[in-house]
Design a protein around this nucleic acid. Structure first.
Length: 862
RNA sequence: GGGGGAGUGGCGGAAUGGCAGACGCACCUGACUCAAAAUCAGGCGCCGCAAGGCGUGGGGGUUCAAGUCCCCCCUCCCCCA
């Protein structure tokens, strides 16, 4: 064995051996069904920036678990692929004249061969997928047709989010509020919706677009969040909130003196979660986009209303609904009747009401809603109290109030909205009822009298999947002047992206510049027709890629359901929490759809989700654009991939952010050198007989070995405590080093060898190349990657004597050594005889002696 | 404002209600060396010469015993309004 640890040569050799002997390639084996483990990491976008250690951390976490599970005997599927469609490829084309396909494939090749393979990840590369390949995206198109068939894909004109910089529309989930904009002086512009990719301020545009009806699944996606015990609570909470189920009622307010009863503009429907406050309504608000606005606006208000709509239309939803944003509105002149009280109240439009949500109309109850309160105060609208806080006298109006016709007008400067439950007042037949009961009672009343019904609404909107860009999956639809929108037959898939197009980035799909492609014949009537020129959102690709890995080369179906049954659901999915709504919601939706089609065995894609922390360097999140990216290639050159891997796992718990510290990396390299040196020394002294005075040292060595096996196994089984597991391996290595430095007569070669073997096995999932090399040096033939994970021997952990801490009145005062077998009485005797303890007791009365077996003794004195 | 999470040495971080600071980094001392690096041995929460005292964001509480459990407060991060 070589005396010096030289990772570069070792790592290359083992990477070649793994790939040459195809050890990580797996095929379905019926005898191992039920014993499988599917370990998956969110696949990367093959960016021109290449990968840095921030990316590698994620892959290292999954790989460590995949390797551990293999050693535990599981049949492990661990695939990798490329989320290869997206804007940067197209922007590179515009900027540098490289075709997106060429740019993408070059990046893939570099990242795969020069970066990932050098890190020693145990992927089954035969299952590699790239979503920009027609072999893959034809199944995006297939799924699109299936969704269309089931009424879950549809086209409509809608006010959609438009990113002027990316020159395309965005799904609701892709509009974010960035922190960058929120900085003191910029308060006014803070609450703006911005593009998730480029942070440009998002605009509203009316366009005809394709949507997936994810709202159809809102309820089951919501219910499903409760059946994911191994998902972080944070992610489940974010999803619940995003789905945003509201239970309440829809109420009908009749329009007084409707212009034309026959045309139907005779009523306004509002959605409210608080029907119990209905008698407190003092106005009604419509969203500015509400179609009734045009019909109901009185001529004398028309000018002001149109001016207001013009101002509001351009603003994003986030901006409009932000709590700190100014609420603005104008009356439109119409008057409606409160169905509960018969009171007449005015109709307004305001910026804080969204057309897309609920019915696009709300009732204004200033006394019991903060937003309505602010609005009423600003515009001098009456405030009518209908719920009395507990403890208030129902006979008396609140102090400082004055009565006005139509209700109680409060001195608003001294009051605020009361939003909690209470007792009903000023609500006719419902007076005296607790308000939570009134919610149901008043809803029932509305239903019986035909002016309302119980209703549930969601915050979740349908998923807008059209993109006006080139580098994505073509939507397999044809627009025929005679037949309308016609789906392509499955037999015509894949619909291949044309190669020669103009990349302009001007907001029209580049596909329009390929007339040979656009002009086609209608699949139904055979007449001249045009293809759909929008492409699909990239999140389409990532919604089902984990299914494709189970059968990556199937050219008759997206995958074989039998193979899906063998591997799915994914046992462990590792990725960033930034995907908590976008990707993770879409792919749950897709999985549920596929489950209904009978394609996958479970309604949820992933049993355990793990969200890792970010990697920081010099105080900032590591990224190429911030110029603080640490290159895995440089690390592999200088210290080897194993050092980079083990440092990444050791420096912080995997769910926490990690500070990259160069000196820490060097420390890890020193540790691996010590491991190497220890195994070298064991081998050099191997075969010797145990020394004459070795019994105690052998016992201690074995205790250390089996203690480490237990600790590392527990840490990996319970939580992914790689940092403490590696620390336990360090303790074992240090103990082995100590043993090897004992005088020859006190050493025990057998115990040392057992320690070395355990050391190598325990370290192998984290430092796999070093593991293979040392395993071979220790005389084993097979790969350590498939060696059996060690099991600790409880007997080795037992000792004859044990040291206990002694506290007096809870303060640490002494230590005593007692036989391990001693019972509480015997321990008490030994402790009370201890001179240090005696000195503390100092003749005082011993009230009680608490003995905690194996740990400590607390003597309570007075 | 609502939801999720976090505050422990110089730093990253350990601690099923049971000896706070495992393990590592940095630093200090010593050995080896002409010297340095590497390596090895030792030290390393704060105050104190010491005995000892004080210490897990702050304040209360429960307990023989609290970083850990309960109540109040402060600060920071993330998500949503």
């Amino acid at each position: 064995m070589q005396e010096k640890y030289e990772p570069q040569a070792i790592e290359r050799r083992w990477q070649e051996a793994w790939s040459g002997e195809r050890v990580f390639e797996v095929t379905e084996d019926p005898s191992r069904q039920g014993d499988t483990f599917y370990a998956l990491t969110m696949f990367p976008y093959p960016s021109g920036d290449r990968l840095h250690m921030g990316h590698m951390r994620t892959y290292t976490i999954t790989d460590a678990i995949a390797r551990y599970q293999r050693m535990r005997g599981r049949h492990v599927l661990h695939p990798m692929g490329w989320d290869a469609f997206g804007l940067p490829a197209e922007n590179a084309a515009i900027k540098r004249g490289i075709h997106p396909a060429k740019w993408t494939w070059e990046n893939i090749e570099y990242i795969r061969d020069q970066q990932m393979k050098r890190m020693g990840f145990s992927y089954d590369w035969t299952r590699e997928i790239a979503t920009c390949s027609p072999d893959y995206y034809r199944w995006n198109q297939w799924f699109f047709l299936k969704l269309y068939e089931h009424g879950l894909a549809y086209r409509k004109e809608a006010a959609v989010n438009w990113c002027p910089s990316c020159a395309t529309v965005l799904a609701n989930e892709q509009v974010i509020e960035t922190r960058a904009a929120v900085s003191g002086a910029e308060r006014a512009t803070a609450a703006q919706g911005r593009c998730w990719r480029c942070e440009s301020v998002v605009e509203k545009k009316n366009l005809m677009q394709w949507f997936f009806r994810i709202t159809e699944y809102a309820d089951e996606l919501l219910a499903g969040t409760d059946e994911l015990p191994q998902w972080p609570e944070k992610v489940r909470a974010i999803q619940r909130h995003w789905i945003g189920k509201s239970t309440g009622a829809e109420l009908v307010f009749r329009v007084k003196g409707a212009v034309d009863e026959a045309k139907g503009a005779t009523e306004v429907r509002v959605f409210t979660t608080r029907p119990d406050t209905a008698c407190g309504v003092t106005y009604i608000v419509l969203a500015p986009e509400h179609p009734l606005v045009r019909e109901l606006t009185r001529p004398e208000h028309r000018e002001a209303v149109e001016a207001f709509i013009g101002r509001v239309a351009a603003k994003s939803e986030i901006e409009r609904t932000a709590a700190e944003g100014e609420k603005e509105g104008v009356p439109i002149g119409a008057v409606v009747t409160n169905p509960f009280t018969g009171d007449e109240v005015p109709v307004w439009i305001a910026n804080y009401v969204l057309y897309e949500y609920g019915t696009g109309a709300v009732m204004g109850v200033p006394a019991h809603d903060e937003r309505d309160f602010d609005f009423a105060r600003k515009y001098g609208l009456p405030i009518r109290q209908v719920i009395l806080p507990p403890g208030d006298d129902p006979g008396a109006a609140p102090a400082g109030s004055a009565t006005t016709p139509g209700g109680v007008r409060l001195e608003v400067g001294q009051m605020q909205a009361y939003t909690e439950p209470g007792t009903m007042i000023h609500s006719g037949a419902f007076d005296g009822m607790p308000s939570p009961e009134a919610i149901a009672a008043m809803t029932r009343h509305a239903e019986q009298h035909g002016f309302g019904r119980a209703r549930v609404t969601y915050r979740l909107r349908d998923w807008l999947i059209s993109r006006q860009r080139y580098w994505g999956t073509p939507i397999p639809m044809v627009h025929c002047p005679g037949c309308g929108t016609v789906p392509l037959p499955e037999s015509e898939l894949p619909l291949i992206l044309p190669e020669n197009v103009q990349f302009t980035g001007h907001g029209k799909s580049p596909l329009l510049s390929a007339p040979d492609w656009v002009n086609t014949t209608c699949p139904r009537c055979g007449g001249a027709a045009q293809r759909e020129t929008d492409t699909m959102d990239g999140f389409m690709c990532s919604s089902w890629y984990f299914m494709r890995y189970v059968d990556a080369h199937n050219d008759r179906a997206p995958f074989d359901p039998a193979k899906a049954r063998y591997w799915l659901p994914v046992d462990l999915y590792v990725g960033g929490v930034e995907h908590a709504i976008m990707h993770l919601l879409y792919f749950r939706f897709f999985t549920r759809f596929c489950h209904k089609l009978g394609l996958v065995p479970a309604p949820e894609p992933v049993t355990r989700l793990f969200t890792q922390g970010t990697v920081r360097y010099n105080g900032q999140r590591m990224s190429k654009s911030k110029g603080n990216a640490v290159s895995p290639n440089d690390l592999a050159d200088e210290f080897g991939a194993d050092t980079a891997r083990v440092f990444t796992l050791f420096a912080a718990p995997p769910e926490s952010d990690l500070d990259w510290v160069d000196s820490g990396v060097e420390g890890m390299f020193r540790f691996l050198n010590r491991v190497w040196r220890n195994v070298y020394d064991v081998l050099r002294q191997g075969g010797q007989a145990a020394g004459p005075q070795s019994a105690a040292a052998a016992k201690e060595m074995r205790r250390q070995t089996h203690g480490a096996i237990k600790k590392v196994t527990d840490d990996l089984e319970r939580e992914f405590s790689f940092n403490t597991a590696i620390s336990a391996i360090m303790v074992l290595s240090n103990a082995l080093g100590d043993h090897l430095r004992l005088p020859a007569g006190e050493q025990d070669p057998a115990a040392a060898r057992e320690a070395a073997e355990a050391l190598v096995l325990l370290l192998a999932p984290f430092a796999p190349h070093l593991g293979e090399e040392l395993w071979r040096e220790l005389g084993h033939q097979g790969f350590v990657a498939f060696a059996r994970w060690p099991v600790h021997d409880p007997a080795a952990l037992l000792t004859d004597e044990i040291e206990l801490a002694v506290q007096v009145n809870g303060k640490l005062r002494s230590h005593v050594v007692v036989p391990t077998a001693a019972d509480a009485d015997r321990i008490r005797e030994i402790v009370l005889a201890d001179s240090q303890t005696q000195a503390q007791i100092d003749g005082k009365q011993v009230i009680k002696v608490v003995v905690v077996p194996g740990r400590l003794v607390n003597v309570v004195i007075k």
